[in-house]
Design a protein around this nucleic acid. Structure first.
Lengths: 249, 249
DNA sequence: CGCGGCTTTGATGTTCATCAAGTAAAGTGG
DNA sequence: CCACTTTACTTGATGAACATCAAAGCCGCG
């Protein structure tokens, strides 16, 4: 394994530290994700890329960047989970999306914006690479295949985000909860039993409903024996039924 | 003027004709929009691009392509208005977005999808160019500046769509109507008086509400002397108040 | 221990979708 | 061109879905 972070090096979260630790992993050339990542790049180009990259460990709860700060890099998620969120009023936030390993954060904004319009926070201990904007721009200009890679990836991200938002907006509350639970199980944890990385309130912010209703409906699902809940641990007992509820929504 | 369609050549809409007329305008090299469009291309490259381009006139109501059809081109809107829409059930559709002059349609999907997941229909008499996918791909591969142009444009489109969807989803119905009216006035017609190019029902599909409520709220606005309505003609009388309602939403 | 944040449940109110029914406008066929 | 049909528009009444408010238990943390 090339990634140090795959070992159990995390210490318990400690607040107040803005950016946990800078790590030098062994580099992009032998990054285990390389095949999904920059396969258009030759050895020497990867070497260049590696030079404008910084890897960090971020602890759960730490803010990676804030709304309004300049975008200087794109962020590649190696490990963990990261939320993109935005204040919409004094008392309320919205979660725009949750990024997981292999995702780029900021890929959509970096070329058209100079400032983030969302904040970025780790919701699990995470490992990320910052890759400088300039570096990416240069590479796009000089390497057509790389450009096409980036474009394809942007395109997929957009489609995913839009489709999931459209799907959600047409569902009722029960459908949304069913959808999000299945999403965690199927796409993030690949298991019917997992620890919810987010609070009830954050779920509400993610799928546009109120905390109370998240709780209410999850309790309903528990009573109906569709799921088991123990604090933040969730086990999906009847995925078929949840799927029905989600698509009926 | 380089564009034939700027003259009044449109005949009244006639249903049943799938694709109105093919037109050879004078070409990309002297297209009046060139400056906004492909300014990364040299003369000879524009010449190539021009060769894989077809220009069409589309009449109001005509379907340009349907959900599920293969994506073979991107569509550039020269003139008119075009809606991207999707069936969500037997009886209901959603409008994903409305494209206007200078917009590319399909730019977001062409690189990650092989089929359209939406249909495209003209809501005003329009002039569009189809530019073949292969042509664009080749150009991206061989011209880094062009690639960057495309990327920047994709990025802007995405941001716009996402931001407007987010804005809408957090507004109440009055806020949404106010928002969409201002959008037409400010961003499409640049005038406080305009002819709504869409039916009440289409407005509903665009901002996710019911036809009856679109009507009800527009009538409210009329009674409150915020707008004047005469059929499809709308005049915004009190834009400041509408802006308040939109952002309060 | 006590404070603040997260969770939970119940009661209440608002917003909005749905249903129904009628009018106006626009397309269609004789 | 007129009668007919369909589609768009409009208003009111009703009910369901969901937000909001209130109150209390729980838990971690200083």
């Amino acid at each position: 394994m090339t990634f140090i972070i795959n070992c159990n090096i995390f210490t318990p979260p400690k607040m107040g530290i803005r950016m946990s630790e800078k790590r030098n992993s062994t580099g992009c050339q032998i990054c285990s994700f390389r095949v999904m990542l920059f396969n258009a790049l030759e050895e020497d180009e990867l070497y260049k890329l590696n030079a404008c990259r910084e890897q960090f460990l971020i602890r759960r709860g730490e803010v990676i960047c804030r709304e309004g700060e300049p975008i200087e890099s794109i962020i590649y998620v190696n490990q963990g989970l990261i939320k993109l969120h935005k204040r919409v009023s004094e008392t309320r936030s919205q979660i725009i999306s949750i990024a997981r390993p292999h995702d780029f954060v900021g890929l959509l904004s970096v070329f058209s914006k100079t400032k983030y319009y969302y904040s970025i926070t780790a919701i699990e201990d995470s490992s990320v690479c910052f890759i400088s904007k300039e570096c990416i721009l240069n590479e796009i200009r000089s390497n057509g295949r790389f450009a096409l890679d980036i474009i394809t990836r942007m395109s997929r991200i957009t489609d995913d985000v839009l489709e999931s938002k459209f799907a959600l907006s047409s569902k009722n509350l029960r459908g949304r909860i069913a959808h999000i639970l299945l999403d965690f199980a199927d796409n993030i944890y690949n298991s019917n039993e997992f620890r919810l990385p987010v609070s009830r309130r954050e779920i509400a912010e993610l799928i546009d409903m109120r905390t109370e209703n998240v709780i209410r409906i999850m309790s309903e699902f528990r009573k109906d024996r569709l799921i088991r809940i123990n604090g933040h641990t969730v086990e999906i007992m009847n995925p078929e039924m949840l799927r029905k509820i989600s698509s009926a929504g």
